[in-house]
Design a protein around this nucleic acid. Structure first.
Lengths: 340, 340
DNA sequence: CTGAAAGCGCTAACAG
DNA sequence: CTGTTAGCGCTTTCAG
């Protein structure tokens, strides 16, 4: 068995409680004694047993990060920044993937709840009420979801979607299609709301096509809908869907951006490398990972009672590249409502 | 506090040890009693406290996965499959990122060692001796590294590199450059060994340029070396470097694949989407994640003593796409050694 | 400031 | 088959 607090106590000629205090940074120990203890500990290569500590304190120094799909390029930068920030604060992080399945998400949440001090739920697929219920069992920080009473880090997709519509309108597009995401996706709902408002405000037609799987396959499958809606521009749930859309459109003999413009969301490496290079709404994923961890740790370590719901909103911007271009033939907006 | 084993015992009218047995699947409990206990537990929503359990058993049911860079597209599929497989076996997984820093890797290893049953080290940057030393403290499974006495999952990069050389030779290239990876990378060393052997066997010249940062930046920076070596083809440490190389070459006015052919390694989404689409050696990352977890769990749960070093080698293959083409002008191999 | 003692929630011999 | 009894390694009152 590894070296324990008892070994250190013996080596330093003090009681184990003194060693404990020396390590927990208690001021109830003479500086000189602490030195001696720390020296002995270093000598023996002692490291406090987190598990044992957790049992008495009720604090594990672990947090959990639950995402829908690790392999979706949206998540890795967020995971990276979250675990890096957590480690800076002496927390380790469990990462778990729900495979876009709400039931798996719930089970995971329940399992992890007992062995962490709190959880970060990124782009959850569960319904609000279920999340709220789970929120009673363990400190929760949501990313891209707003649930009354819970902390959240939001990315301003609404603004991004509005920018996208504005950009497309400026290029002369009159008939848009919105390729939404999965059911229960807050991002998808926000996008829709904002895009529809922006479209209405400018007298544009907007067809909604949803839900779609948030993958390249989802995009490929949605390509037909674009043609059927006779849209000249489409805003996709994310970059993966956008890339799939471009592929699917190409397969249908529709050129992007000459005949149809495509805007993605996320600004992942996938969109940057795609040809045509993707016009997309940049999401601050790395910042969101850090912010979520900060919020969580703050909630966990708050001396005072459960503080008020904290919410951080991060900005988005539009990155214009090559997948958008002027509308093919500027049709007169015969059936458009009067612009505001 | 949450419901404990004592509450369940009371509710079921048995002693806590009976509850414990009912949950640990001991056969030392009457089926009928177990039913009653389980019912009471379900009623109360009891879940065994993993932390407390870990303290007595010494088994945490957690494993750690240490990778160099979560955001490098090589890793996410591996992380995803590893955590999925682990969960199937009732293990949770800590994911940590070393940012390519050997010292961070060691610190992480030491910290995590105490709170997991074992660790998977993917593409470590530490030296063999340091890994071997750490291997004494905690069960370790390495991915893409061979250290005597430790379990490992290897991807047959050597074969892949040989295939790449063969492919390039077949296209008439005589002067190759190998853009290697970071110091201490087993993959890089394997590639080099195999590529040099294959090149020598076919009378090709091969220049080594290393180390390189395993990133797009690394590739961009290496582009000049290709021109200076007057190579007509280059094999890159990974897809990211390959894509960077293509970019860098383009900036230097060198066309890929017309003037220089580029082969990547990994077969990530990055290479698939790049234009020109990248010819690359496909690495079985998802399979490796699963295999590593299997090996680790097997080592941890082995009844018998530390079983012999297990090693799994997974195959690779060459995916030919558009970044490779016939050599520009088939120079006579004036200075080549006689072919084998 | 430091030692003593009582557990945290659970498992694991050992009795019965 | 089930109850008893020790702890796992550490923190935390409570004395001194």
């Amino acid at each position: 068995m590894a070296v324990t607090i008892r070994d250190v106590a013996q080596a330093a000629g003090v009681h184990i409680s003194t060693v404990s205090r020396a390590f927990s940074g208690s001021h109830l120990v003479k500086a000189e004694t602490r030195e001696r203890v720390l020296a002995a500990a270093a000598e023996l290569g002692y490291r406090p047993n987190q598990t044992a500590r957790a049992l008495t304190t009720g604090r594990t120094q672990n947090i959990g990060l639950i995402v829908a799909d690790i392999a979706n390029p949206f998540f890795p930068p967020l995971i990276k920044s979250a675990q890096s920030r957590a480690r800076l604060c002496s927390y380790q992080v469990f990462v778990a993937d729900t495979d876009e399945d709400p039931r798996a998400e719930e089970e995971l949440l329940r399992t992890l709840a007992r062995q962490v001090d709190g959880l970060v739920l990124v782009s959850p697929r569960l319904a609000n009420e279920e999340i709220a219920a789970l929120g009673g069992e363990v400190p929760l920080v949501l990313v891209n979801r707003r649930v009354p009473g819970l902390c959240a880090v939001l990315m301003d997709v609404a603004h991004g979607a509005a920018l996208a519509v504005e950009h497309l309108a400026g290029l002369g597009h009159r008939r848009l299609l919105l390729a939404g995401g999965p059911r229960n996706s807050w991002t998808s709902a926000e996008m829709r709301r904002a895009a529809e408002a922006a479209a209405a405000g400018r007298g544009l037609e907007m067809t909604l096509f949803a839900p779609n799987s948030p993958t390249e396959q989802g995009g490929i499958a949605a390509a037909r809908a674009v043609v059927e809606a006779r849209a000249t521009a489409v805003i996709a749930y994310n970059d993966l869907v956008a890339v799939g859309l471009i592929e699917g459109l190409d397969a249908l003999g529709v050129a992007v951006p000459e005949e149809v413009s495509v805007v993605g969301i996320d600004d992942t490496v996938v969109g940057r490398l795609n040809r045509p290079r993707l016009t997309t709404v940049a999401m601050p994923t790395a910042a969101a990972g850090r912010a979520a961890v900060d919020l969580l740790i703050q909630a966990v370590e708050a001396k005072d009672a459960d503080q008020a719901t904290a919410e951080t909103t991060l900005g988005t911007s539009l990155v214009v590249r090559d997948s958008t271009a002027p509308a093919p033939r500027p049709e007169p907006a015969a059936d458009a409502p009067p612009a505001a």
